[in-house]
């Protein structure tokens, strides 16, 4: 517990850029098995490149946009994860985020698709205020965030949608101040992001009356000796929580409640020094998901130091994009 000097490894920017570009090139069996995550993967890749300020030179805009539209599910009126896959709220939000990055007005979507996708997302909200992921009924605070964020991107939020959604979120808060996936469910750091993020989108952060309690819970996620964040008490740290926890703290204006330098060091030790990319823990397999959230974490810690794009903790998109949003006021 003594204050030791933290060794901070260099950021392997070029390697990470290459790693992301190369995602599509090694077509192993596992790659084909991950089609159902491709839209999300693309969003993670685009975001990671944007953070490193190299999106335009690394990924051809038209190819990205073509891919997104090739995943349009006209039957449901939403985006699937891959061509011919069913529309789902998860992939729909990713698709909208990608399109918004390239076209803040979303004119590219066209009025017909726009209407359909709005109807699709709105249609997924249940009387409880929660959203389901698709027509088959899976509910979870993840989908509340997805729903509100999507509609916010489309500038389609209304009190009829926001109020019950917010009510539902508040039912998911636990005695420790933190949030679970459903009312009654155990607190989990990623769930905190979806709840706090959704409340921020809904302009209802004031409902978290005791933000010291929540802030304390979040700050306790940082563990030694690694300095990384875990997702629940007595669990191991994982790079992706660098985002879920730090973004939540950032929304609550409590980023300084954790040791950012130690977190930075942890994220950087999870880099693959040979092939680029970031894994969940040091020496573990890398993937695009942890690469994106590791870099997003670094951007929240100090975007200027790394010459990164500043990231918006609410939307996990660059602030230069989100500042154009018409923010919902309750």
């Amino acid at each position: 517990m003594t204050d030791t000097e933290v060794e901070i490894l260099p950021l392997l920017r070029e390697k990470h850029i290459n790693y992301i570009i190369e995602q599509d090139s090694h077509r192993s069996y596992e790659y084909w098995l991950s089609e159902h995550l491709r839209m999300n993967g693309l969003y993670w890749g685009v975001t990671a490149l944007l953070i490193m300020k190299s999106l335009d030179e690394s990924l051809p805009r038209s190819e990205v946009i073509d891919f997104v539209f090739s995943c349009w599910d006209s039957k449901a009126g939403g985006f699937g994860a891959f061509p011919r896959h069913d529309a789902h709220l998860l992939s729909t939000l990713s698709a909208l985020q990608i399109l918004k990055i390239y076209d803040t007005e979303l004119t590219i979507l066209g009025s017909e698709k726009r209407e359909q996708v709005v109807a699709f997302v709105k249609g997924l909200q249940l009387p409880s205020g929660c959203f389901q992921g698709d027509r088959f009924g899976e509910v979870d605070t993840r989908f509340v965030y997805n729903g509100l964020s999507s509609l916010s991107l489309l500038d389609e939020l209304t009190p009829e949608i926001v109020d019950p959604a917010v009510k539902f979120i508040m039912e998911c808060q636990n005695f420790d101040g933190s949030f679970g996936m459903l009312p009654g469910a155990e607190s989990h750091a990623a769930q905190v992001f979806t709840c706090v993020g959704a409340l921020a989108i809904a302009d209802k952060l004031h409902l978290i009356e005791d933000d010291t309690k929540l802030g304390s819970w979040l700050s306790e996620r940082q563990v030694l000796p690694s300095g990384g964040f875990n997702g629940r008490p007595e669990k191991l740290p994982d790079v992706c929580y660098s985002w879920w926890v730090l973004s939540s703290l950032s929304i609550l204006n409590k980023k300084h409640w954790v040791d950012l330098e130690k977190l930075e060091a942890f994220i950087l030790t999870c880099q693959d020094s040979k092939d680029g990319g970031i894994g969940d823990r040091p020496d573990n397999q890398t993937d695009i998901y942890h690469t994106c959230f590791g870099l997003a974490g670094l951007s929240l810690i100090d975007h200027e130091k790394y010459n990164f794009t500043e990231i918006d903790p609410v939307y996990c998109m660059p602030t230069e994009v989100t500042k154009t949003f018409k923010k919902w006021k309750s």
Partner: peptide, 10 residues
């Protein structure tokens, strides 16, 4: 996503 899988650089 890979979790808890040791990295093997082939």
């Amino acid at each position: 996503m890979q979790h808890g899988i040791k990295r093997i650089n082939l």
